[in-house]
Design a protein around this nucleic acid. Structure first.
Lengths: 171, 171
DNA sequence: GCGGTGAAGTTGAGAGTTCAACTATGGGGT
DNA sequence: ACCCCATAGTTGAACTCTCAACTTCACCGC
């Protein structure tokens, strides 16, 4: 892949705008959370997801998927949150490999305290600056990007599998 | 700020979509760069920005601004890139505090080799999945977010200054 | 039941980022 | 000329993240 169709000036404008907007916006959110609640945004998301689950607990893998996090990253993060006393691990009966992450009362309290500022920041910097039409457009655009992303991994996976099978067949 | 107007279900859909789309998309880009060129996307951006400057060099602060990076982060990054031989530092004559970061020939070669795959990835996962109308919408949305972000910092800054002045006046 | 393969999680090392402190220089006011 | 403060940039420590092993357990075919 040494050939590429470069971005024209309009595409560059879209691309740079996208980078700046998402980058600065997320950095802003992360800083706000770190400053006001002493934890990175990613950790807040873990608490938030857990709080919405029945029993306030979830298997590690599912939690990782919902937080768009690798298993390794989540494991480290939960270890940290466990040290803070905001989450605790629980063994899974039906699958002895499994672990549940469960939000503690202390964790829930921290979440409740951090949430309003977070929501306000999101509202001020995202929803307040966009018209309802733009919000709908953003949802459509997000959906399109996500849709274009997931088949990527699937096809890559099946390619790898095919390659592996042929390698085994010829080896 | 203990009160907050929560997100309704439509807003939550927009918000979660935005998080997933931008998060997964950027992670994908970063992985591609790391895998194919052995450097994080942020480092590629530094090389790219430098390559477009006259003399392929720029003051550290301006480079940081164009990469949406803190000065500290850039300093660490340039140190790494210097070890790799892709960038070198140069003293500034007119301001003895200043430093220039300059792209080396080796750095330019690495950039040229990495760029096509990067552009292709951006095209495949962003431009190819959006209609021209959506691309325009995305540009508008990005502009609105950026505009809503920068006044924030300005007003916070002036507030701090005002606070500081009154504190000095009364102290 | 046994062996092989894949899935669930964890771990440690290495790399990048953040934050606060620090050095050194520029610039304005008196 | 001097003082004060702002600016430019660096540094080290603490923290987070990534990547590649590694352990343990589940599942499937024989």
């Amino acid at each position: 892949m040494t050939q590429a169709r470069w971005l024209d000036s309009r595409e560059q404008a879209v691309w740079r705008g996208f980078l700046t907007a998402t980058g600065s916006f997320m950095e802003n959110l992360d800083r706000q959370m770190q400053r006001d609640s002493g934890m990175p945004l990613a950790y807040f998301e873990i608490l938030a997801v857990l709080s919405e689950m029945p029993g306030r607990s979830l298997r590690m893998s599912e939690l990782a998927a919902m937080c768009r996090s690798s298993r390794s990253r989540l494991s480290h993060a939960v270890s940290r949150l466990e040290e803070a006393g905001w989450v605790k691990r629980r063994a899974c009966e039906s699958d002895k490999r499994g672990q549940f992450a469960e939000l503690t009362d202390a964790g829930f309290a921290v979440l409740e305290k951090a949430a309003p500022d977070h929501v306000n920041t999101v509202r001020r910097h995202l929803f307040d600056v966009l018209t309802p039409e733009q919000q709908d457009q953003l949802e459509q655009i997000s959906a399109a990007i996500i849709k274009g992303l997931t088949p990527e991994c699937d096809s890559a996976k099946t390619e790898l599998e095919a390659e592996f099978r042929s390698a085994r067949a010829s080896g």
